[in-house]
Design a protein around this nucleic acid. Structure first.
Ligand code: FES
Ligand code: FES
Lengths: 149, 149
DNA sequence: CCTAAAGTGTACCAAATCGGTACTGATTAG
DNA sequence: CTAATCAGTACCGATTTGGTACACTTTAGG
Protein backbone atom coordinates (compact mmCIF):
# COMPACT_ATOMS: atom_id res chain seq x y z
CA UNK A 1 0.00 0.00 0.00
CA UNK A 2 3.04 2.28 0.00
CA UNK A 3 2.43 3.31 3.53
CA UNK A 4 4.45 4.48 6.41
CA UNK A 5 4.57 2.01 9.29
CA UNK A 6 2.01 2.28 12.01
CA UNK A 7 4.73 3.12 14.51
CA UNK A 8 5.72 6.07 12.39
CA UNK A 9 2.17 7.29 12.36
CA UNK A 10 2.04 6.97 16.12
CA UNK A 11 5.31 8.86 16.32
CA UNK A 12 3.81 11.84 14.55
CA UNK A 13 0.94 11.82 16.99
CA UNK A 14 3.30 11.75 19.93
CA UNK A 15 5.40 14.51 18.43
CA UNK A 16 2.29 16.54 17.86
CA UNK A 17 1.37 16.09 21.49
CA UNK A 18 4.82 17.28 22.51
CA UNK A 19 4.54 20.23 20.16
CA UNK A 20 1.38 21.34 21.91
CA UNK A 21 3.57 22.49 24.80
CA UNK A 22 7.08 22.62 23.42
CA UNK A 23 8.69 24.08 26.51
CA UNK A 24 7.39 21.60 29.05
CA UNK A 25 8.76 18.19 29.87
CA UNK A 26 6.21 15.44 29.29
CA UNK A 27 6.46 12.02 30.88
CA UNK A 28 5.86 8.95 28.77
CA UNK A 29 2.87 8.22 30.97
CA UNK A 30 1.29 11.56 30.21
CA UNK A 31 1.81 11.17 26.47
CA UNK A 32 0.34 7.70 26.60
CA UNK A 33 -2.90 9.10 27.94
CA UNK A 34 -2.92 11.77 25.28
CA UNK A 35 -2.56 9.48 22.30
CA UNK A 36 -4.39 6.48 23.75
CA UNK A 37 -1.80 3.83 23.13
CA UNK A 38 0.00 1.35 25.35
CA UNK A 39 2.82 2.64 27.50
CA UNK A 40 5.52 0.26 26.23
CA UNK A 41 4.71 1.26 22.68
CA UNK A 42 4.91 4.95 23.38
CA UNK A 43 8.06 4.39 25.34
CA UNK A 44 9.71 2.65 22.45
CA UNK A 45 8.77 5.45 20.09
CA UNK A 46 10.14 8.08 22.41
CA UNK A 47 13.40 6.30 22.88
CA UNK A 48 13.85 6.05 19.14
CA UNK A 49 12.95 9.68 18.57
CA UNK A 50 15.37 10.69 21.29
CA UNK A 51 18.27 8.76 19.85
CA UNK A 52 17.60 10.44 16.52
CA UNK A 53 17.99 13.78 18.24
CA UNK A 54 14.47 15.02 17.63
CA UNK A 55 13.59 15.15 21.31
CA UNK A 56 15.58 15.42 24.52
CA UNK A 57 15.16 12.97 27.37
CA UNK A 58 15.49 13.62 31.09
CA UNK A 59 15.87 10.69 33.42
CA UNK A 60 14.91 10.28 37.02
CA UNK A 61 11.96 11.60 38.94
CA UNK A 62 10.05 14.30 37.08
CA UNK A 63 11.92 13.29 33.97
CA UNK A 64 10.39 12.98 30.55
CA UNK A 65 10.76 14.24 27.04
CA UNK A 66 10.78 17.58 25.31
CA UNK A 67 11.22 18.69 21.71
CA UNK A 68 14.85 19.31 20.88
CA UNK A 69 13.97 22.06 18.39
CA UNK A 70 11.09 24.36 17.65
CA UNK A 71 8.13 22.62 15.95
CA UNK A 72 8.74 24.70 12.85
CA UNK A 73 12.19 23.18 12.52
CA UNK A 74 11.11 19.56 12.74
CA UNK A 75 9.75 18.06 9.53
CA UNK A 76 7.74 14.97 8.84
CA UNK A 77 10.74 13.71 6.96
CA UNK A 78 12.75 13.91 10.17
CA UNK A 79 10.22 11.75 11.95
CA UNK A 80 9.93 9.23 9.16
CA UNK A 81 13.69 8.93 8.90
CA UNK A 82 14.00 8.56 12.66
CA UNK A 83 11.51 5.71 12.66
CA UNK A 84 12.21 3.90 9.42
CA UNK A 85 15.67 4.92 8.36
CA UNK A 86 16.61 6.73 5.19
CA UNK A 87 13.88 7.27 2.62
CA UNK A 88 14.44 5.08 -0.40
CA UNK A 89 11.66 3.97 -2.67
CA UNK A 90 13.75 1.17 -4.13
CA UNK A 91 16.50 -0.93 -2.65
CA UNK A 92 19.22 1.09 -4.25
CA UNK A 93 17.84 4.59 -4.25
CA UNK A 94 18.96 5.22 -0.70
CA UNK A 95 22.47 3.97 -1.30
CA UNK A 96 23.95 2.24 -4.28
CA UNK A 97 25.08 -1.35 -4.14
CA UNK A 98 22.17 -2.68 -2.14
CA UNK A 99 20.33 -3.94 -5.18
CA UNK A 100 21.80 -7.06 -6.67
CA UNK A 101 21.13 -6.42 -10.31
CA UNK A 102 21.77 -2.72 -10.63
CA UNK A 103 23.80 -3.34 -13.74
CA UNK A 104 20.82 -4.07 -15.98
CA UNK A 105 18.23 -1.86 -14.34
CA UNK A 106 17.50 1.03 -16.63
CA UNK A 107 15.15 2.77 -14.29
CA UNK A 108 17.41 3.31 -11.32
CA UNK A 109 18.28 6.93 -11.90
CA UNK A 110 14.68 7.85 -12.47
CA UNK A 111 13.59 6.20 -9.27
CA UNK A 112 16.16 8.30 -7.50
CA UNK A 113 14.50 11.41 -8.85
CA UNK A 114 11.12 10.24 -7.69
CA UNK A 115 12.69 9.48 -4.38
CA UNK A 116 13.84 13.05 -4.03
CA UNK A 117 10.38 14.27 -4.85
CA UNK A 118 8.91 12.16 -2.06
CA UNK A 119 11.57 13.24 0.39
CA UNK A 120 10.87 16.83 -0.57
CA UNK A 121 7.20 16.39 0.07
CA UNK A 122 7.86 15.05 3.53
CA UNK A 123 10.49 17.65 4.30
CA UNK A 124 8.15 20.41 3.27
CA UNK A 125 5.69 19.80 6.07
CA UNK A 126 6.76 20.77 9.56
CA UNK A 127 5.49 19.56 12.87
CA UNK A 128 4.05 23.01 13.37
CA UNK A 129 1.97 22.50 10.23
CA UNK A 130 0.69 19.20 11.54
CA UNK A 131 -0.88 20.71 14.62
CA UNK A 132 -2.73 23.38 12.72
CA UNK A 133 -6.17 21.87 12.28
CA UNK A 134 -7.04 23.77 9.14
CA UNK A 135 -4.39 24.39 6.51
CA UNK A 136 -5.98 27.51 5.11
CA UNK A 137 -3.08 29.63 6.24
CA UNK A 138 -0.54 27.87 4.08
CA UNK A 139 -1.82 29.30 0.79
CA UNK A 140 -3.59 26.03 0.12
CA UNK A 141 -0.67 24.36 -1.53
CA UNK A 142 2.63 22.71 -0.87
CA UNK A 143 4.83 23.57 -3.81
CA UNK A 144 7.47 20.97 -4.42
CA UNK A 145 10.23 20.76 -6.85
CA UNK A 146 12.68 18.15 -7.79
CA UNK A 147 15.95 19.45 -8.94
CA UNK A 148 16.88 17.36 -11.93
CA UNK A 149 19.84 15.03 -11.59
CA UNK B 1 12.42 2.47 4.95
CA UNK B 2 9.33 3.88 3.26
CA UNK B 3 9.98 1.94 0.17
CA UNK B 4 7.95 0.48 -2.57
CA UNK B 5 7.94 -3.33 -2.60
CA UNK B 6 10.55 -5.12 -4.61
CA UNK B 7 7.88 -6.54 -6.87
CA UNK B 8 6.76 -3.03 -7.68
CA UNK B 9 10.28 -2.10 -8.60
CA UNK B 10 10.48 -5.14 -10.84
CA UNK B 11 7.18 -4.15 -12.37
CA UNK B 12 8.57 -0.82 -13.45
CA UNK B 13 11.50 -2.56 -15.06
CA UNK B 14 9.21 -4.90 -16.93
CA UNK B 15 7.01 -2.03 -18.00
CA UNK B 16 10.06 -0.15 -19.17
CA UNK B 17 11.08 -3.16 -21.23
CA UNK B 18 7.63 -3.24 -22.78
CA UNK B 19 7.78 0.47 -23.46
CA UNK B 20 10.96 0.00 -25.45
CA UNK B 21 8.81 -1.50 -28.22
CA UNK B 22 5.25 -0.49 -27.39
CA UNK B 23 3.70 -1.91 -30.53
CA UNK B 24 5.13 -5.40 -30.34
CA UNK B 25 3.84 -8.31 -28.31
CA UNK B 26 6.46 -9.59 -25.86
CA UNK B 27 6.31 -13.06 -24.33
CA UNK B 28 6.96 -13.46 -20.63
CA UNK B 29 10.01 -15.50 -21.54
CA UNK B 30 11.48 -12.68 -23.56
CA UNK B 31 10.88 -10.16 -20.80
CA UNK B 32 12.43 -12.51 -18.28
CA UNK B 33 15.66 -12.48 -20.22
CA UNK B 34 15.55 -8.72 -20.46
CA UNK B 35 15.18 -7.99 -16.77
CA UNK B 36 17.08 -11.02 -15.48
CA UNK B 37 14.54 -12.38 -13.06
CA UNK B 38 12.85 -15.74 -12.66
CA UNK B 39 10.06 -16.60 -15.06
CA UNK B 40 7.40 -17.30 -12.42
CA UNK B 41 8.09 -13.95 -10.83
CA UNK B 42 7.83 -12.03 -14.07
CA UNK B 43 4.74 -14.00 -14.94
CA UNK B 44 3.06 -13.01 -11.72
CA UNK B 45 3.90 -9.37 -12.28
CA UNK B 46 2.53 -9.41 -15.78
CA UNK B 47 -0.69 -11.05 -14.74
CA UNK B 48 -1.23 -8.42 -12.08
CA UNK B 49 -0.42 -5.56 -14.43
CA UNK B 50 -2.79 -7.02 -17.00
CA UNK B 51 -5.69 -7.30 -14.58
CA UNK B 52 -5.11 -3.67 -13.64
CA UNK B 53 -5.55 -2.79 -17.29
CA UNK B 54 -2.07 -1.39 -17.83
CA UNK B 55 -1.12 -4.05 -20.36
CA UNK B 56 -3.03 -6.35 -22.69
CA UNK B 57 -2.49 -10.09 -22.73
CA UNK B 58 -2.72 -12.50 -25.66
CA UNK B 59 -2.95 -16.20 -25.01
CA UNK B 60 -1.87 -19.12 -27.08
CA UNK B 61 1.13 -19.62 -29.32
CA UNK B 62 2.87 -16.34 -30.12
CA UNK B 63 0.95 -14.77 -27.28
CA UNK B 64 2.38 -12.31 -24.82
CA UNK B 65 1.87 -8.86 -23.46
CA UNK B 66 1.72 -5.36 -24.84
CA UNK B 67 1.18 -1.95 -23.29
CA UNK B 68 -2.49 -1.02 -23.21
CA UNK B 69 -1.76 2.68 -23.65
CA UNK B 70 1.06 4.86 -24.91
CA UNK B 71 4.00 5.09 -22.48
CA UNK B 72 3.27 8.77 -21.98
CA UNK B 73 -0.14 7.92 -20.62
CA UNK B 74 1.03 5.41 -18.02
CA UNK B 75 2.36 6.87 -14.80
CA UNK B 76 4.43 5.42 -12.03
CA UNK B 77 1.42 5.92 -9.80
CA UNK B 78 -0.53 3.56 -12.07
CA UNK B 79 2.10 0.89 -11.64
CA UNK B 80 2.40 1.34 -7.89
CA UNK B 81 -1.36 1.20 -7.48
CA UNK B 82 -1.58 -1.87 -9.68
CA UNK B 83 0.98 -3.67 -7.56
CA UNK B 84 0.25 -2.45 -4.04
CA UNK B 85 -3.24 -1.07 -4.06
CA UNK B 86 -4.28 2.49 -3.31
CA UNK B 87 -1.62 4.85 -2.06
CA UNK B 88 -2.14 5.70 1.59
CA UNK B 89 0.63 6.76 3.90
CA UNK B 90 -1.39 5.97 6.99
CA UNK B 91 -4.07 3.40 7.65
CA UNK B 92 -6.86 5.86 7.23
CA UNK B 93 -5.57 8.19 4.57
CA UNK B 94 -6.69 5.89 1.76
CA UNK B 95 -10.16 5.46 3.14
CA UNK B 96 -11.62 6.54 6.46
CA UNK B 97 -12.65 4.05 9.09
CA UNK B 98 -9.70 1.72 8.72
CA UNK B 99 -7.83 3.23 11.63
CA UNK B 100 -9.20 2.26 15.00
CA UNK B 101 -8.57 5.45 16.91
CA UNK B 102 -9.32 8.11 14.36
CA UNK B 103 -11.36 9.99 16.92
CA UNK B 104 -8.37 11.27 18.87
CA UNK B 105 -5.84 11.56 16.11
CA UNK B 106 -5.20 15.20 15.43
CA UNK B 107 -2.90 14.63 12.52
CA UNK B 108 -5.16 12.69 10.20
CA UNK B 109 -6.16 15.48 7.87
CA UNK B 110 -2.59 16.61 7.48
CA UNK B 111 -1.42 13.13 6.61
CA UNK B 112 -4.06 13.11 3.93
CA UNK B 113 -2.54 16.21 2.42
CA UNK B 114 0.90 14.67 2.47
CA UNK B 115 -0.60 11.64 0.89
CA UNK B 116 -1.85 13.67 -2.00
CA UNK B 117 1.55 15.21 -2.44
CA UNK B 118 3.14 11.77 -2.71
CA UNK B 119 0.49 10.54 -5.09
CA UNK B 120 1.05 13.62 -7.19
CA UNK B 121 4.75 13.00 -7.32
CA UNK B 122 4.19 9.48 -8.58
CA UNK B 123 1.50 10.52 -11.02
CA UNK B 124 3.74 13.19 -12.45
CA UNK B 125 6.27 10.76 -13.85
CA UNK B 126 5.25 8.73 -16.87
CA UNK B 127 6.64 5.49 -18.15
CA UNK B 128 7.99 7.45 -21.08
CA UNK B 129 10.01 9.54 -18.65
CA UNK B 130 11.42 6.44 -17.04
CA UNK B 131 13.03 5.19 -20.21
CA UNK B 132 14.73 8.46 -20.98
CA UNK B 133 18.18 7.99 -19.54
CA UNK B 134 18.86 11.65 -18.88
CA UNK B 135 16.06 13.87 -17.64
CA UNK B 136 17.46 17.10 -19.04
CA UNK B 137 14.50 17.49 -21.35
CA UNK B 138 11.95 17.87 -18.60
CA UNK B 139 13.03 21.36 -17.53
CA UNK B 140 14.86 19.86 -14.61
CA UNK B 141 11.91 19.90 -12.28
CA UNK B 142 8.69 18.17 -11.50
CA UNK B 143 6.35 20.81 -10.17
CA UNK B 144 3.82 19.42 -7.78
CA UNK B 145 1.00 20.98 -5.95
CA UNK B 146 -1.35 19.82 -3.34
CA UNK B 147 -4.67 21.46 -3.45
CA UNK B 148 -5.50 22.32 0.11
CA UNK B 149 -8.26 20.38 1.82
C1' DC C 1 -7.31 -33.09 -34.71
C1' DC C 2 -2.99 -32.81 -32.14
C1' DT C 3 0.61 -30.59 -30.22
C1' DA C 4 3.49 -27.21 -28.43
C1' DA C 5 3.75 -22.51 -26.93
C1' DA C 6 2.08 -19.52 -24.49
C1' DG C 7 -0.96 -17.19 -20.44
C1' DT C 8 -4.24 -18.22 -15.93
C1' DG C 9 -5.29 -19.68 -11.41
C1' DT C 10 -4.39 -21.53 -7.16
C1' DA C 11 -1.94 -23.08 -3.54
C1' DC C 12 1.91 -23.24 -0.80
C1' DC C 13 6.21 -22.05 1.69
C1' DA C 14 10.31 -19.81 3.97
C1' DA C 15 12.01 -15.57 5.50
C1' DA C 16 11.55 -11.04 6.93
C1' DT C 17 9.10 -7.47 9.03
C1' DC C 18 5.79 -5.43 12.16
C1' DG C 19 3.48 -4.48 16.24
C1' DG C 20 3.39 -5.48 20.76
C1' DT C 21 4.90 -7.26 25.50
C1' DA C 22 7.92 -8.38 29.40
C1' DC C 23 11.63 -7.82 32.22
C1' DT C 24 15.75 -5.99 34.07
C1' DG C 25 18.96 -2.13 34.66
C1' DA C 26 20.31 2.90 35.20
C1' DT C 27 19.45 7.55 36.79
C1' DT C 28 17.89 11.22 39.72
C1' DA C 29 14.69 14.35 42.87
C1' DG C 30 13.30 14.50 47.30
C1' DC D 1 16.84 5.25 50.34
C1' DT D 2 13.14 5.17 47.56
C1' DA D 3 10.00 5.99 44.11
C1' DA D 4 9.55 7.81 39.56
C1' DT D 5 11.15 7.58 35.24
C1' DC D 6 14.01 6.59 31.14
C1' DA D 7 17.20 2.76 28.78
C1' DG D 8 18.24 -1.69 26.96
C1' DT D 9 17.31 -6.16 25.55
C1' DA D 10 14.96 -10.02 24.40
C1' DC D 11 11.11 -12.32 22.87
C1' DC D 12 6.67 -13.59 20.48
C1' DG D 13 2.67 -13.96 17.40
C1' DA D 14 0.72 -12.20 13.16
C1' DT D 15 1.26 -10.49 8.85
C1' DT D 16 3.54 -9.52 4.64
C1' DT D 17 6.84 -10.47 1.15
C1' DG D 18 9.18 -12.86 -2.25
C1' DG D 19 9.44 -16.94 -4.44
C1' DT D 20 8.07 -21.71 -6.23
C1' DA D 21 5.17 -25.53 -7.92
C1' DC D 22 1.68 -27.45 -10.46
C1' DA D 23 -2.44 -28.18 -12.91
C1' DC D 24 -5.51 -25.79 -16.34
C1' DT D 25 -6.86 -23.07 -20.59
C1' DT D 26 -6.21 -21.00 -24.93
C1' DT D 27 -4.54 -20.76 -29.66
C1' DA D 28 -1.42 -21.08 -34.04
C1' DG D 29 0.09 -24.26 -37.05
C1' DG D 30 1.04 -28.70 -38.99
S1 FES E 1 16.29 -1.51 -8.05
FE1 FES E 1 18.30 -1.34 -7.58
S2 FES E 1 18.67 -1.27 -9.61
FE2 FES E 1 16.64 -1.34 -10.09
S1 FES F 1 -3.86 7.06 11.61
FE1 FES F 1 -5.86 6.79 11.22
S2 FES F 1 -6.26 8.36 12.48
FE2 FES F 1 -4.23 8.69 12.86
Amino acid sequence: MLRVSKLTDYATEVMAALAAAPARVHSAQELTERVRLELPTVSKLLKQLASAGLIESFRGVNGGYRLARAPERISIADIVIAMEGPIGMTECSAQAGSCDHESHCGVRVNWQRINQAIAGALAGVSLADMIKPSPRRRAASIPLRVVGA
